[in-house]
Deep mutational scan, measured.
Amino acid sequence: MGSVRTNRYSIVSSEEDGMKLATMAVANGFGNGKSKVHTRQQCRSRFVKKDGHCNVQFINVGEKGQRYLADIFTTCVDIRWRWMLVIFCLAFVLSWLFFGCVFWLIALLHGDLDTDYKDDDDKSKVSKACVSEVNSFTAAFLFSIETQTTIGYGFRCVTDECPIAVFMVVFQSIVGCIIDAFIIGAVMAKMAKPKKRNETLVFSHNAVIAMRDGKLCLMWRVGNLRKSHLVEAHVRAQLLKSRITSEGEYIPLDQIDINVGFDSGIDRIFLVSPITIVHEIDEDSPLYDLSKQDIDNADFEIVVILEGMVEATAMTTQCRSSYLANEILWGHRYEPVLFEEKHYYKVDYSRFHKTYEVPNTPLCSARDLAEKKYILSNANSFCYENEVALTSKEEEEDSENGVPESTSTDSPPGIDLHNQASVPLEPRPLRRESEIGSRR
């Protein structure tokens, strides 16, 4: 089982795998120059863009038009607004034209077009017409509009002379109601789609790998820009990579689940303020055997998904993003964004995407760390350097704002901070800030 798991979770494809794949392509008759073999020097295209759209195009789909027309309502909801407006206008105009032609044909076959009612006051002739005051196609078209929109100006009306005319008036009224219901329903469904809710759900630009509770963890940050909550919010993550099976089958995008606390339930989050999602790199993680150097040379993509129900409509929305291997910062942490004021908490989104480097973060893999092949620094050293990194950030910001350097908390000259780390230190809580992250 261990060997199978290692093969499945191998992220960085070796040169031997690339040569094996190329040999397979030639042997199977696919070596026509169009096949692409992804190596370390040639990274694959992003499968999920940063804005959440999937970078996929469908080609050679059989009976595409028929399949889309069979699900016309979903098609109308998914198309762009400009095409929705075109369909909206065409549906009414074509129905008016169709029934206008029908009423014109009825008048033509009944002989109503030969009668001039402007110079004739004989009401008996008017009563013999199928539709009064309809003696041309324009008049028939206007009567069709008046019937379907129930305008009723009063000059044109159907008589009991022709039952077919009466039937067409009733039929057009029913068709008009159906068109109204369909168009209004599609427009309302399109307006109520929770897709735009994703514009106020954000992911951090970069993911980070750092120590948390004595273990290497992959972390990324999510935030909600609205005050309205995302009900039943939960997160998922998958690692996408290519691999070759033991039988020699090439899988271009193998999807591997990344555990973010599904078993323990901590994948469900209360997204009021930005939260750091934590994936513990343990023996079940696809990143277990990867060191910093392996991450730098790897070719994979981590897709992160945030799902929840919109509070206003109770409709489920899904926000997506992805991180390539070069977008994962090893040995970094996110800057705090949640600050405790006197009577409330304040979230500073200008710090949302910012990170700071944490010294002495192990550069080895989580496996080597678990097997004690890498000796961690003293816990006080880690905490102290973590505090120094934050303090230096604040000093830089104070210097930019014009604060005198004498007010900063610099260490005395001639003292090495790293050498001082081995000395037991008193706890130094942050002056006014605390970061709330997901705790395992």
Rank of each mutant, 00 (worst) to 15 (best):
R236P: 01
F58V: 10
Y323L: 11
T355H: 03
F73M: 11
I375V: 13
V56H: 10
D348W: 00
N55L: 04
L290E: 00
G65N: 08
E161V: 04
W104L: 12
T317K: 05
S173C: 15
R67M: 06
V310N: 12
C157K: 10
V260E: 00
N135R: 07
A189K: 15
V158S: 02
P286C: 02
Y349P: 13
A91V: 04
Q238F: 14
K128A: 15
S228K: 12
Y356A: 15
M19T: 12
I87D: 15
C43P: 14
D112K: 03
F103L: 03
D78H: 13
A25V: 05
E341N: 13
V131F: 06
A139G: 15
R236I: 03
L417Y: 09
S365D: 00
I251R: 15
R268V: 06
I436P: 09
L253P: 15
S399A: 15
K342A: 09
D284S: 13
I178F: 12
D282Q: 05
G33E: 07
I258M: 08
P427I: 13
G185R: 02
Y334T: 00
R428T: 14
H332R: 05
F382Q: 09
I178Q: 03
I244L: 08
N380K: 04
N32E: 15
R5Y: 06
I375A: 12
E232M: 07
R221A: 00
E396V: 12
M211L: 08
S422Y: 10
R268W: 10
G33S: 11
I106L: 06
K36A: 13
K193I: 05
V48R: 01
Y349S: 12
D416A: 06
K128R: 13
R243V: 10
L142F: 02
F30P: 15
F30R: 15
Q318A: 09
L271Q: 04
N401S: 09
G402C: 09
Y356P: 00
L21P: 06
A129K: 07
S45E: 13
D213H: 14
P163I: 10
T6A: 08
W330E: 00
R67W: 03
Q148E: 04
D299K: 05
A366H: 00
L287I: 04
V222W: 02
A140H: 01
L69W: 12
I436Q: 10
F141K: 00
M24N: 09
T245Y: 10
V260G: 00
L253A: 10
F103T: 05
K292T: 01
C217S: 13
A186H: 07
L225A: 12
A370F: 05
S350N: 10
S14D: 11
T276L: 11
A22K: 13
F182V: 04
Y9N: 15
I269G: 11
F92W: 10
I174E: 02
S242K: 15
W81N: 02
E327I: 01
G402T: 10
L363W: 07
A140M: 03
T149K: 04
S322F: 00
I328Q: 00
M19D: 06
I174T: 04
L230P: 08
Y334W: 07
T200M: 06
W83S: 10
K50T: 02
M315Y: 08
C177G: 10
E63W: 15
E340K: 04
R82N: 03
C101K: 02
D51H: 11
T115R: 03
E387Q: 02
L94E: 01
R46L: 00
T361H: 13
A192N: 07
I59F: 14
I244H: 15
I79R: 11
S377V: 08
N206F: 06
R221Q: 14
V260H: 03
F137E: 01
S381V: 07
T147D: 02
K373R: 12
D254R: 14
I87M: 14
C217P: 00
V403M: 13
T75S: 11
R156S: 00
P359K: 09
V231M: 09
G31S: 08
I256H: 05
L253D: 13
V48Y: 10
A70R: 15
E280H: 10
I295C: 09
H110W: 01
S350Q: 12
M84W: 15
L324R: 12
G18D: 07
C319V: 12
H353D: 09
D257L: 04
L69K: 13
S285L: 00
F98C: 14
G31A: 12
C383I: 14
S136V: 00
L287Y: 01
L306A: 10
T149W: 02
E385T: 04
E435P: 06
M24R: 11
R8Q: 04
V304W: 08
T200Q: 06
S408H: 11
N360G: 11
I184D: 02
V202Y: 10
I244W: 10
I266E: 14
D180T: 15
I72D: 13
K34W: 05
S204W: 00
V260F: 03
R44N: 13
E371L: 06
L271I: 06
E249C: 11
G265N: 11
S144C: 01
I79F: 10
Y344N: 14
G414L: 01
L94A: 10
K193C: 07
G402W: 10
L338W: 06
G176M: 01
V93E: 02
F182Q: 05
I328P: 01
A140L: 02
A25M: 08
A165M: 03
E249D: 07
N135A: 12
